[in-house]
């Protein structure tokens, strides 16, 4: 528990650090920061008042204080483009992002474990060579291009899946099942694209873990006690090799999220990433800043979760 508490305490300065970084970028960014925090419908006279309220005549460190207190009250500012509050816009997009990222994470793990296990166990076999080549290609292919290639193949050539979007407009009032089916159809290609890269790199790690664990003395000892290969592999090697994957997963979260943002954009998947990338084009700094803050906090929470999960499953940390 002590360890857990320490982790939580670590997260707080990290979040503050990220807000500081965001604040600095906002200061450097062109445009009047007042604009960002103000409802665009207020009149010009009120603007002066707002400036004073925001403390823009005060030293920069005080400004940061005001800004931070705004952030913690859920005021991430207003979009330059649509004038809507950034927090609402992003919150609105969160479900789509979560659907995509959680389902991809889940599927990546489900596929990685058996793939890496067998590949590591049958090291040097045809299957292992195949998995290794797949891993290397999966890590080298630019995700966004892979997405384009999938669209080219599955949508334009074979006409199997829609090229983009979340739900067909005609189905807005359809039954839940029809809707879910339609969303899944839209989900398939972006999901597949994200999975390729994720599976490629995780399998590589897991395979390596399995290989090094199969060389450990306790595996030899278990074999010497007459345990079957199946049992050794699926009980003893599986768990030991799976533990570091939790940490690696936590560490690769920023990459996975960055990757999925571009994918959301390519497939017009209405998540945070899509608004984020579109904000890049329209130079909508408040939205960009909000997206960075949001995703950073998600990443920190994910890391925290990974840490906690690790302490729960690894006896060496838990009990020492």
């Amino acid at each position: 528990m002590n360890y857990f508490l320490k982790r939580v305490l670590y997260a707080i300065p990290m979040i503050i650090g990220i807000t500081l970084l965001s604040f600095i970028i906002m200061q450097v960014a062109p445009g009047d920061p007042t604009m960002m925090f103000t409802d665009p419908n207020v009149s010009l006279e009120d603007m002066q008042q707002v400036k004073a309220n925001l403390g823009l005549d005060k030293p920069i460190i005080v400004q940061y204080g005001y800004w931070l207190s705004n952030i913690f009250q859920g005021n991430l500012g207003y979009s330059y483009k649509s004038g809507k509050p950034v927090f609402d816009i992003l919150l609105d997009r969160l479900p789509a992002t979560l659907i995509l990222s959680i389902s991809s994470l889940f599927l990546i793990l489900i596929i990685t474990f058996p793939l890496g296990l067998i590949s590591g166990y049958k090291k040097g076999s045809f299957f292992d060579d195949f998995v290794t080549i797949f891993s290397f290609f999966g890590m080298a292919i630019p995700t966004f291009w892979l997405g384009l290639m999938f669209i080219l193949l599955f949508s334009l050539q074979l006409n199997l899946f829609p090229t983009s979007g979340f739900l067909d407009h005609s189905l807005t009032n359809a039954g839940l099942f029809t809707k879910a089916l339609n969303i899944s159809k839209h989900l398939f290609l972006p999901l597949l694209t994200i999975m390729v890269g994720g599976i490629a790199s995780l399998t590589r790690y897991y395979r390596f873990g399995i290989i090094s664990i199969l060389n450990q003395e306790y595996i030899k000892s278990a074999t010497a006690r007459g345990l079957s290969e199946k049992r050794i592999l699926f009980k003893h090697a599986f768990k030991n090799a799976a533990l570091p994957i939790i940490t690696i997963l936590g560490l690769s979260l920023p990459g996975l999220i960055s990757g999925s943002f571009i994918i959301e954009f390519i497939f017009s998947w209405p998540g945070m990433g899509q608004v984020g990338v579109e904000a890049v084009f329209s130079r909508d700094y408040p939205i960009l800043m909000g997206a960075i803050l949001f995703s950073s906090v998600l990443i920190i929470l994910g890391n925290l979760l990974a840490d906690v999960a690790y302490t729960l499953v690894d006896p060496r940390i838990r009990k020492s």
Binding site: Q216, E217, Y218, K220, S221, A222, T223, A224, R225, G226, L227, S228, H236, K239, N240, L243, V313, D314, P315, R316
Partner: peptide, 22 residues
């Protein structure tokens, strides 16, 4: 597999390494 353990047992130099840590 029947011989291993049942008939012939093996103990190792580093006992900590010979037990699965998890």
């Amino acid at each position: 597999r029947k011989i291993r353990g049942n008939e012939i047992g093996l103990i190792f130099q580093n006992p900590l390494a010979a037990l699965n840590p998890v």
